[in-house]
Every structure is written in C-alpha cells, then in structure tokens.
C-alpha cells in the first residue's frame, strides 16, 4: 500500500467536492425533500407505533439514503475518470491496484460521512432525543456503511466504460437499493420475494444498524429488523469483500 498515493487520491476528491458547491447543495437537498415532503405527507397516513412517529422511523433510512447516493456518486466518478482519461494517469503510476481502490473508497467514505452528519443534525426537529453516545454510535455506523457502499460502487464502476451507463445504475441499482433497504417501510412487512431481495441488499443492514442507534427502544414494525451484531458483522464483511473484488477488477488486463 502506498500511503502517499491513497492520501492524494482522497485529497483530490475532497478538493473537488468542496469546490463544487452545487453538488453539496443537491446532496443535502435530496434527503430534506424526502424527509419533509414525503415523510410529512406519509405521517398523515401512518400513525405512530410504540411512540415512534413515521418521520422518526424513516430518519435512519434518510441517513442511509444520503450515504447511498453520495458514496455511489463518489465511486461512479471512476467512470468519469475513465471517460475523460484521468484514470490512465493513475493506472500507469507505480501504485498497487489495492491502493487505488482504498483511496477511492476512503474518498467516498469521508464525503458521505460529512453529508450524513449534516443531515443527522436535524434530529431535534423530529422530536428525537439522542445522547452523545448515540450520536457517536450513529457517526461510526455511518462511516462503516459509507465505506462498504463506496467499495460496492467501485466494483460496479469497473464494469462500465462510459457515463451513458449512469442512468442505468441510477434507475436499476441505486433506486431499488434505497427502496428495498427498510428505509421507507419495514423489511419485515415486505412480501416474501422482496424480503429476500432486501436481505441481499448491503444497505439494508446499514439502515437497520442506524435504527438500533437512533431508536434503540423501538419494537414492532417501527423497530429494527435484525440483531445489531448481525448488522455490523454483515457491513464489515461486505466492506472487505468489495475492496478485494475492486482490487481484482482493477487488475484485469486486456
């Protein structure tokens, strides 16, 4: 592993992220729209269960969404780098493929976590009471989930050559991942076939872990679906698998 290379890959992404104000604004606007437009509307239809309102129920899911979109976009920038040639500059350098994947995954992790923390700051407006330990727990989970989704995005990005494929990824991967993650409705209430797909979705376990951290006492449909240790175990295992897969995918030579 080349730490200078990892550092500079992260620094480049971060610099570009800070420079593109519109990207940050739209990244923050999306969760707000879902939380306050969809969430507020649905609250009229869905009564609170066990002291958890619908807006409170979807809050972990909205954090998950923030992470999903920003980690995926960050990783998909690999396709842009390929299209505009910059990836070649990285690939001809004496840098191992694992370092490149680590650099890209860490970029996605940092950028997503920052956005998730901004969204997390809204919790008092939803009537949630989080102690300092809950907040630290939420941030740690966000970081791990960001890393695993970024690594997943990198594996995905290695399969695509041009940015036309972007809308395919958006419609057929990112949106279904969001809806089948337990973000908007509990996994346990899904029909069997969808429940099965939800269990294969890496984001499901992230959202579930966030539910544990945000509403630890909630039970029933508004509560978490899985054991918190299973959630964390799956997230970590997936991070490792996706990073290794990404490294392998980058090594392929024609």
């Amino acid at each position: 592993m080349e730490f200078n290379a990892i550092y500079v890959i992260v620094a480049r992404e971060f610099k570009k992220f800070v420079r593109e104000k519109s990207r940050l604004i739209s990244a923050i606007a999306r969760p707000l729209v879902w939380l306050f437009l969809v969430g507020a509307g649905m609250s009229r239809l869905v009564a609170p269960v066990g002291g958890v309102s619908y807006m409170q129920f979807i809050f972990p899911g909205i954090l998950g969404m923030t992470i999903l979109f920003s980690s995926m976009f960050s990783s998909i920038s690999i396709i842009w780098d390929k299209e505009f040639g910059f990836m070649k500059e990285i690939l001809v350098a004496p840098v191992s493929r694992t370092s490149i994947v680590m650099g890209k995954a860490l970029s996605g992790t940092i950028i997503s976590t920052i956005q998730a923390v901004i969204v997390l700051a809204l919790f008092p407006f939803l009537g949630l009471k989080l102690g300092i330990l809950n907040i630290i727990g939420v941030i740690l989970i966000c970081t791990t989930v960001s890393f695993s989704i970024s690594a997943f995005g990198i594996v995905l990005a290695t399969f695509y050559e041009s940015y036309e494929s972007f809308s395919v990824i958006m419609n057929f991967i990112i949106m279904p991942m969001f809806f089948l993650s337990g973000a908007m409705y509990p996994v346990k209430l899904l029909p069997e076939i969808l429940k099965f797909i939800a269990k294969l979705n890496p984001l499901t376990y992230g959202v579930d872990a966030l539910k544990h951290a945000i509403s630890p006492l909630a039970t029933g449909p508004m509560g978490p679906d899985f054991n918190v240790f299973i959630d964390i175990g799956v997230i970590i295992a997936m991070s490792v698998v996706f990073v290794l897969m990404g490294g392998k995918a980058f090594e392929r030579k024609g």
């Binding site: 200078n4 500079v8 620094a11 610099k15 990836m87 500059e89 350098a93």
Partner: peptide, 20 residues
C-alpha cells in the same frame, strides 16, 4: 489525462505524490 477541474499546479502535485 489531466484533471480539467484541478489547477495546473494541483495536477502536478497529484503526480508527485502518486510517484512518491
């Protein structure tokens, strides 16, 4: 293979780090 959204200097710095 330059990054058009970085400055000239940033592109070169990136290279210097990449090549250690």
């Amino acid at each position: 293979t330059l990054d058009k959204d970085l400055t000239a200097e940033e592109n070169l710095i990136f290279h210097a780090y990449l090549y250690n």
